[in-house]
Computed example of a mutant assay.
Amino acid sequence: MKYKMLQKVFIPVFIIYSMGVFAATYHSFNRPADHKHIVTVNGKIEKDEYSKFKQFIDNQTLPIDIILLQSNGGYISPALEIGEYIHEHSLHTRVETYCNSACLYPFLSGNNPVLYQKGEIAIHRPYRGEIGKDMKHCHPHEKLYNKLIRKLTQFTENKKLASRIVEKMYQTPAPHRYSINKENSGEWHIHVSDKGLLNHI
């Protein structure tokens, strides 16, 4: 009983106060109700993030049900690869705090992605180049624009929605960003829940 109470206190504190600007860290938590795992992905999506993500997933001994995301984004290619894995394995995705920039792709790849009522997803026009060095905005006439539409169509099974999301991204050059939250989530077909992480363990 004491352990269960400590577990319920620790998880939200970890999610809320960890900073998404550092390299991503991974943790898993057992759900006693069905013996499945919640896996948290917390931090920056680096170039080699997919291999780190898959290695962590492969080392889990119990079935994974939910991928809980908290990230300020990072590199697009590994974010899409993570999204491919999540989509192919029909994992659920959740955001409780924030999921910005490239974090959008794994979030939308999930089976029934859910944004909690106090959470936010912020998107902007993609960059090319090294993060923090020779970054340049991408443009709609480049190949990435159509690639993102194809991938998001695959993840959401809704080409019109995928096209609208990518268009909104490209209409929002950094440092500006477009926020998706409980107020406008319906416009983007994202389910919002008032039940936080504690309701899933």
Score class of each variant (00 low, 15 high):
Y17W: 15
H87L: 03
S193M: 09
L104C: 08
G74S: 02
S101P: 03
I15C: 12
N30W: 07
Q70A: 07
I165N: 04
G74P: 04
K182P: 01
Y98T: 05
I149H: 08
E157P: 00
V41F: 15
I121C: 00
Q117N: 14
H92Y: 12
A24V: 11
N181P: 07
E130D: 12
K136D: 09
E49R: 00
K133C: 03
Q154S: 09
L69S: 06
G129H: 04
F155S: 04
I67F: 07
P32R: 08
V166M: 02
N199R: 13
N30G: 09
P78G: 00
A122K: 12
K136Y: 08
K133Y: 09
H191L: 09
Y170F: 14
S185Y: 09
A162W: 01
C103F: 02
H124R: 05
N72K: 10
Q7M: 13
N111K: 11
L115N: 02
K8F: 13
L62I: 00
N158H: 10
M5T: 14
H37T: 14
S163Y: 06
I121P: 00
L108N: 00
L108W: 01
V114K: 06
S28G: 03
S51D: 14
R94S: 06
K143F: 07
Q117Y: 12
E81W: 03
I123V: 10
V114R: 05
P173Q: 01
L80I: 15
R125W: 00
E96M: 13
N184G: 03
N199A: 15
Y145S: 06
L69R: 05
N181D: 14
I149S: 10
E187N: 07
P140T: 10
Q60N: 08
Q171E: 15
K44T: 11
D48T: 13
P113Q: 05
I121G: 00
G110E: 04
T40N: 08
E46L: 08
S71A: 10
W188Q: 05
L80A: 09
D58Q: 13
H189G: 01
M5Y: 15
L68Y: 08
L69Y: 06
E142C: 09
I45A: 02
M5A: 15
H89L: 03
Y105W: 07
F22I: 12
I11K: 02
E142P: 06
I82N: 01
C99N: 03
V21Y: 04
V166Y: 02
K160N: 13
V21H: 01
